[in-house]
Write a protein that binds this DNA or RNA. Structure first.
Lengths: 141, 141
DNA sequence: CAAAATTAAATTGTGTACAATGTAATTATA
DNA sequence: TATAATTACATTGTACACAATTTAATTTTG
C-alpha cells in the first residue's frame, strides 16, 4: 500500500478532527448559556454588527440559509435576536439583537479564555496556526 | 465591545471554517467514487488495517458508534466492507474489506493529490500546520 | 459461582451542514 | 414596460456528529 492514502499522512484529517474536538469542548462550556457552537458564532457576529441580513451573516460564517434559517429561528425563540423583513427590500431578513441578546455578551466574556486554556499552544504557535488557516480560507474565495 | 469576542480574534473559528470548506472540496472530488468524506476516511483506515472493530476505528477517527454504525451499514450496502461479529467476543463487530473495497483503493489513488492542489500552502507551511494540529489533538487525549 | 461492573454496538433525539429546489421580491433588459 | 434574470430566504432530503440510553456479551468481584 502506498503511503499517500494513509490517514497519518493527510493534512486534512487532523484539521477535521481538531475542529470537531474543539467544537465539542465549546459545547461543554456553552451549555450553561443555553447556546450551541453555531448559535454562539452567530451571536458573535450579531454583537459586532448590531444589524445584519442572512446573506451577509452567511458570508461571514461560511454558512448558507439552509443551515442558518433553523439556527436563527432557534435564537429568536430564545429571545436573543429578532427577525423582521427589511422595509426597503422585503427579500432581506433583518436580524437584530434583543435586550437579552445584548446582555448575553457580558455573560460569555470568559468563554474565549476558557477555550484558550484547552489548547496547549504558545502565543506564537497560535498566531502561526491562525495565519496558516486564513491563508487556506482566503484562497477558497 | 471588547475585542475578545470578535470573530476575527478567535483561533477556533478559522479552524472550524477551514475544516468545513475542505470537506466540501472533498465532496466534489469523492462524488464520482460514490463516497462521502466520512466514508472515505473509514476506508482509509480499512485499507491500512484490513480488519478492525468499531471501537478501534472510532478511536482512530475521533468518532463514536452513534456516527459510525450508519456509515458502516452504508459502506456494507455498497459492498465496500463486510460486518460480522467476532467469534472470540461477540460484542465486537469485525469489519473486513471486500474485493470491491480493495479495488477502490486503486481508484482513489489520486484524491490526496487533487486535494493538495486546492490548498495553497508550501510543503513547509503544510508541515507546520500538520504539527500544530497534532499538537492540539495529542493534548486532548 | 452468582451478582455487579464493565465493555462494545446500536438506538434515539437534537442540531447542524449542504445540495438542490421553490417562492417571492427586485432589478435588468429587450 | 412587460418579461427575463437575479437575488434573498425558506424548504426538502441526505448525511453526519454526539450525548444519553439501551442491549447483550464478557469480566470482575464478593
Amino acid at each position: 500500500m502506498k503511503d499517500n492514502l494513509k490517514l497519518e499522512n493527510q493534512l486534512c484529517f487532523p484539521l477535521y478532527a481538531c475542529s470537531k474536538e474543539i467544537v465539542k469542548k465549546y459545547k461543554s462550556i456553552l451549555d450553561k448559556f443555553d447556546l450551541t457552537y453555531t448559535q454562539y458564532i452567530v451571536m458573535m457576529v450579531m454583537w459586532e454588527e448590531k444589524e445584519i441580513n442572512v446573506k451577509n451573516l452567511g458570508d461571514r460564517l461560511y454558512l448558507d440559509s439552509g443551515t442558518l434559517t433553523p439556527v436563527l429561528k432557534k435564537l429568536e425563540s430564545k429571545n436573543f435576536i429578532k427577525r423582521t423583513r427589511s422595509d426597503l427590500d422585503e427579500r432581506n431578513l433583518k436580524l437584530l439583537l434583543t435586550e437579552k441578546g445584548i446582555k448575553l455578551m457580558d455573560k460569555v466574556q470568559n468563554v474565549p479564555n476558557e477555550i484558550g486554556k484547552c489548547i496547549n499552544l504558545s502565543k506564537d504557535e497560535a498566531l502561526q496556526l491562525y495565519k496558516l488557516l486564513y491563508k487556506i480560507l482566503d484562497n477558497k474565495e
